[in-house]
Computed example of a mutant assay.
Amino acid sequence: MKKQTFLFFLILLLGSRIEVSAQSTEAQNVSKAIDGLVVAMIAADKDMLNFQLSDALHYGHSSGLIQDKEGFVKEVVSKSPLSYQSIERENEVIHLSKKTATVSHILTIKGKNPSGEAVNIRIGNMMVWEKEKSGWKLLARQAYKL
Rank of each mutant, 00 (worst) to 15 (best):
F72E: 02
R141V: 03
E26C: 03
A56S: 11
G116E: 11
W136P: 10
E75K: 14
K74G: 02
V39A: 12
S78V: 02
T25H: 04
L139V: 01
R89H: 04
A44D: 00
T25K: 04
F9K: 11
M126I: 12
Y84Q: 00
N120I: 08
K112Q: 12
N125C: 15
L96H: 07
E90T: 10
E90N: 09
S54R: 00
P81N: 01
K145F: 13
A27D: 06
L12K: 08
M127Q: 15
M48F: 01
D35S: 15
A33G: 05
T100L: 07
K133P: 08
M1A: 00
V103N: 12
K112W: 10
D55S: 02
S115G: 06
A22C: 08
S83Y: 14
D35G: 13
L82E: 10
A56M: 11
G135L: 07
S97L: 11
H95K: 08
N50Q: 08
K133N: 15
V103W: 14
S24N: 04
V76M: 00
T108K: 13
S78R: 14
L7I: 01
E130N: 05
Q52W: 03
S78T: 04
I87R: 14
H61L: 04
S86P: 01
I18Y: 13
Y59F: 12
V103H: 12
D35E: 15
L138V: 05
S31V: 05
A22R: 14
I106T: 12
M1H: 05
I123Y: 08
S134T: 15
S83N: 14
V128F: 02
D35W: 07
V39Q: 10
K110V: 01
V128W: 00
T100C: 05
T102A: 06
Q28L: 12
L53E: 06
F9N: 08
N120H: 07
M41K: 13
V76C: 02
M41G: 09
H95W: 08
Q142P: 06
R17Y: 13
L13I: 08
M41L: 08
K145N: 11
N91F: 02
N29K: 15
S54H: 02
R122D: 11
L13R: 09
G64Q: 08
N29E: 15
S63F: 00
P114T: 05
G116Y: 14
F72P: 04
Q142E: 12
Q85M: 05
A22V: 03
V93G: 06
N50M: 11
H61K: 02
A118L: 15
K133G: 14
K79C: 03
L146M: 15
V93L: 07
E132I: 13
S104V: 06
R141Y: 02
T108D: 04
A22K: 07
T5Q: 15
E92F: 00
V77H: 00
Q4V: 14
V38G: 05
S62E: 09
E75N: 11
K69C: 02
D35Y: 05
Q23A: 12
A33C: 09
R89C: 00
S21R: 09
V30M: 01
D47E: 15
L49W: 02
T102F: 15
D35A: 09
R17F: 15
E130V: 00
L138S: 03
M126G: 12
L139T: 05
I94E: 08
P114V: 07
K69A: 03
I121C: 02
K79D: 04
E88T: 01
